[in-house]
Amino acid sequence: MNGGMQSAADPILSVRGLFKHFGGIKAANGVELAVGRHEIAGLIGPNGCGKSTLFSLVSGMVMPDKGEIRFDGRAVAGMSAHRIARLGLARTFQIPALFDNMTVTDNLLAAAAEGHWQGAYERAAETLSLLKLDHVADNRASDLSGGQQKLLEFGRAVMRQASLILLDEVTAGVHPNIRKIILEAIARLREQGVSFLVIEHDMEMVRNVCDRIIVMDSGRVVTSGSFEDIVRNSEVMQTYLGRPQ
């Protein structure tokens, strides 16, 4: 077990020496990690440790102060969010960021409007079916339940035909049936070659879905490894779960 760089030789995402400070808050304080191709990596850590900020830095929503981010072999640090997205990186947000006044179908089509328009209507129909949202296809996104909103946001990431998807607590607070739908979709997409970096607090889900777990604390990666490695690490357990060994 070592830092977050432990991964395949040819990672789809690698982050080195990444810093982002907001005033006195060190949201990213020298982050080092990598995600392998076709890998599902889990990103865990206590609230406020910098996980979501890392997503924003990688996806171009927030500009880093310093450091290197390579996605699919290209340096993307400082690149605008839409350019990074067009390279094949998709993300979801911790609080669903839907296009509220648009229908469910239009939300999916909007996700494909830039760069993936060919066959968008067919893919939207497939995605609606995959995520079991067919019956609300013409509803406004704001009219969906919380769980359905999570599904729709995940569906938009699917519509991007991305090679790496960043999922920010995509199953948090959803009904077990919806969680099952999302997990099945993740498994299916992985078979098609999609990689994932998943922020998750539900350790059961992390254990069942993730190939490898990366642990963050205070703006940096403290360790990474298999689920078994992580739960045997007394320092991690104390930091993350607050449980003395």
Binding site: S59, G60, M61, S80, A81, H82, A85, R86, A90, R91, F93, A97, L98, F99, A110, A111, A113, E114, G115, R156, R160
Partner: peptide, 9 residues
């Protein structure tokens, strides 16, 4: 921001 994340300039 979500529109940007969908590749929209």
């Amino acid at each position: 921001p979500a529109a940007e994340a969908m590749g929209i300039n």
